[in-house]
Simulated scan of single mutants.
Amino acid sequence: MTLLAVERIKLRSTRSAWCCAALAVALTLTFAAMFAAGSATTAPVTVTSTQFGSGVGLLIVMVMATLAVTTEYRYGTIRATFVAAPRRTQVLLAKAAVVALISAVLGELCSFGSVAAAKLAVPTADLAIDTPFEWRAVAGTGLVFALAGTFAVAIGALVRHSAGAIALLIGYTQGAEQLVQFIPKAGPAIHHWLPFNVGNKFLTGDADPITANAHDGLPPSDATLGPWPALIYFAGFTALALGAALVTTAKRDA
């Protein structure tokens, strides 16, 4: 519990964490309001369409999670942390737990806040969250943010350099997973099993019949797993990344 409290204080006292958190929520809600206002004249605003900007929020939260690790290596404070708590794996686990919790809270603020922002922009829109799919698409965002934040912590611990870790995350999530589809023959099959594509299936899979053709929210995933198995798969991939970070952190010099 002491390590958890220490990591919470560290993150709370870091300016970059506050800036990233504020930026993630602000941009996500702004995108939701703008998209709702812009599309209201041509198509009905739906609960899923309000989540249009959550991908941007997720990316910023992952940057925050990465900086929570790499900033300590940059300024050398990680050495003092490891002297005070020699069991390095416990330190990293505590940091991952704190970041996951904060990421989950930010995910819920982004998702439910987007619904509220769209409602303010288009007061006549019917944005009641009624169906299991709508609840999963909105409330489930916190789970995906938590796992993605944990994955970003692992990458930060493995790379230990802010620019390199952030570039790797952005390059993979925004580029590599999409470009894989262009590999002849095997590309689409590989893309079905890439972690962030699968994680997105939890939020976009098994859409309600009345909104199944509405591709105005998050881009639908083409993963073959169902929504809940997809979340478990994404969690497993995150656990593998964190496991690799734990082993590396325990063996390398600070």
Rank of each mutant, 00 (worst) to 15 (best):
F31R: 07
T71F: 03
C110F: 06
L242M: 02
V105K: 11
N200K: 10
L168A: 14
G187M: 12
T77Q: 08
Q178P: 02
P220G: 08
M62F: 08
L58F: 09
T66F: 03
G175P: 07
T77H: 03
L169E: 12
F237A: 14
D253L: 15
P44K: 09
A36Q: 05
F35E: 15
A117V: 14
F202C: 11
A36M: 05
V144T: 07
Y233K: 04
C110P: 07
D216R: 09
L3R: 09
D208Q: 08
A212V: 13
A157V: 05
V247T: 11
E7I: 11
G53F: 03
V153D: 00
G53M: 04
A212W: 07
Q51V: 11
H161S: 01
A239F: 01
H161K: 11
F112C: 15
P184L: 12
A152P: 00
A65W: 00
R15C: 02
I102L: 10
S16A: 09
M64A: 13
L203Q: 11
A186L: 13
A223T: 07
A21E: 00
V6W: 00
P188W: 01
T141V: 15
V115M: 08
T81I: 07
T89W: 01
I210K: 14
P184I: 12
T2Q: 12
D126R: 09
G76C: 04
A22E: 00
L58N: 10
A167W: 06
R8V: 06
S16R: 01
A84F: 06
A214G: 13
T173A: 04
L169M: 12
